[in-house]
C-alpha cells in the first residue's frame, strides 16, 4: 500500500477534479418486460371480468355484509383466538425449547415427547380430541381448588385455545431451539465468566440475541395461525369462517360470504405484516451498524430526492 502512494508524485491534483464526464448511455431496452406485462394485465382483466359479470354472484351482498355485526364479531374472535393461542404457543414454546436443551435428561425427554406428539398429529385431530375429552375425563377434579363437569370446562373457546395453542407450542419450541442454538457460545462463556447464573445468562444475554432469529419465523407462524384458526369451525367456536358461512347458508350467498371472509383474512394478515416489519427492526439492534429505514422513512427520502431533482 505504501508503495503505491510513494509512486504518485506529491503534486498530483486530487482525483475528483480529474474525474471524466458522467456516462450518459442509452440503457438496454427490455422488450420482454413490456410484452409480459401486457399478457399478465390481459389475464387479470379476464379473471376480474369473469368474477364481476358472474350472474350468480350478487356483489352488492359482499358490500352489505362486509361490516355486518356478526361478521365483525367473527373477525374479532378470529383475532382474539389467534393472539391468545399464539401467546400460549410462544410462552410454552420457549419453555419447551429451554427444556429440550437442558442438561437434565428428564426435562429434555419430556420436551422431546411433547414435540413428537403435537407435531406428529394434525391440528384438526387435536381440536377434536379436546372437544371430546369428556369421554375420558367426565369430571375435571383439581381437589379442593376446582371441580366441574368436563363439558362445562371444555367450551368451544377452551377447545380452540388449547387445540391451537398447544399445537403451536410444539412448532414454536423448534423455532426457539434453533434461535437459542444460533447464539455464539462465546456469549454464554462471557456471561458465565462475569459470574452470571444459567437462568440470568439465558434471560439477559442469550434469549435477546436469539430473538433476531426467532421473530421472523414467529411472524410467519402467526400469519399461519390467523388462517389455521378457521379450523376451530369444527369445535363450534364462532369465528370468522363460521360466522360468514352461517350467513352464507341461510341467505343463499355462499360464495359472497367466502369473499367477505377472504377480505377480512387478507386485511388481518396484511396489517400484521407491517407490524412484523417493525418488530424485526427492533430486534435487529446491534446486529448491523445502522437500522434499515422504515417504509415511511424510505418514502420521505424518495420525496426529498425527487424535489431536489426538480429544483435543479
Amino acid at each position: 500500500m505504501t508503495d503505491k502512494i510513494d509512486k504518485e508524485p506529491a503534486d498530483t491534483p486530487p482525483r475528483a477534479s480529474l474525474a471524466p464526464e458522467t456516462i450518459k448511455a442509452i440503457p438496454v431496452r427490455h422488450y420482454g418486460r413490456y410484452v409480459s406485462a401486457v399478457i399478465v394485465l390481459a389475464l387479470v382483466a379476464l379473471l376480474v371480468n369473469a368474477f364481476a359479470t358472474a350472474e350468480k354472484i350478487q356483489w352488492s351482498a359482499v358490500g352489505d355484509k362486509l361490516f355486518d355485526s356478526t361478521v365483525l364479531a367473527g373477525a374479532g374472535r378470529t383475532l382474539l383466538i389467534s393472539v391468545l393461542a399464539m401467546i400460549v404457543g410462544v410462552v410454552l414454546g420457549v419453555v419447551l425449547a429451554v427444556m429440550r436443551l437442558s442438561k437434565n435428561p428428564v426435562t429434555s425427554w419430556v420436551a422431546w415427547f411433547y414435540i413428537w406428539f403435537f407435531r406428529g398429529t394434525p391440528v384438526y385431530v387435536q381440536l377434536l380430541l379436546w372437544f371430546n375429552l369428556a369421554l375420558i375425563f367426565p369430571m375435571l377434579n383439581l381437589g379442593p381448588i376446582y371441580k366441574d363437569e368436563m363439558t362445562d370446562v371444555m367450551t368451544p373457546f377452551m377447545c380452540a385455545l388449547l387445540g391451537l395453542g398447544l399445537n403451536e407450542a410444539a412448532y414454536m419450541a423448534e423455532i426457539c431451539r434453533a434461535g437459542l442454538l444460533a447464539v455464539d457460545e462465546g456469549q454464554t462463556e462471557a456471561a458465565h465468566a462475569l459470574g452470571m447464573s444459567h437462568g440470568r445468562t439465558l434471560r439477559r444475554i442469550v434469549i435477546p440475541q436469539a430473538m433476531r432469529v426467532i421473530v421472523p419465523p414467529t411472524g410467519n407462524e402467526f400469519i399461519n395461525m390467523l388462517k389455521t384458526s378457521s379450523l376451530v369451525y369444527a369445535v363450534t367456536y364462532n369465528e370468522l369462517l363460521r360466522a360468514t358461512s352461517t350467513i352464507g347458508s341461510t341467505s343463499y350467498a355462499v360464495m359472497e360470504m367466502l369473499f367477505v371472509a377472504s377480505i377480512w383474512y387478507l386485511v388481518m394478515t396484511s396489517v400484521f405484516s407491517v407490524f412484523q416489519y417493525y418488530l424485526e427492526r427492533r430486534f435487529a439492534r446491534g446486529s448491523s451498524r445502522s437500522l434499515p429505514p422504515t417504509p415511511w422513512q424510505k418514502i420521505r427520502v424518495n420525496l426529498m430526492a425527487f424535489s431536489r431533482e426538480r429544483g435543479v
Binding site: G195, G286, S287
Partner: peptide, 21 residues
Amino acid sequence: VALQRRDIGMVFQRFNLFPHM
C-alpha cells in the same frame, strides 16, 4: 461456581461483547 467467577475477570480472544447492548 458463579460466586467464584465473580472475582475472576476474563478477556477473550474474540471479545465476546454482548452485541445487543
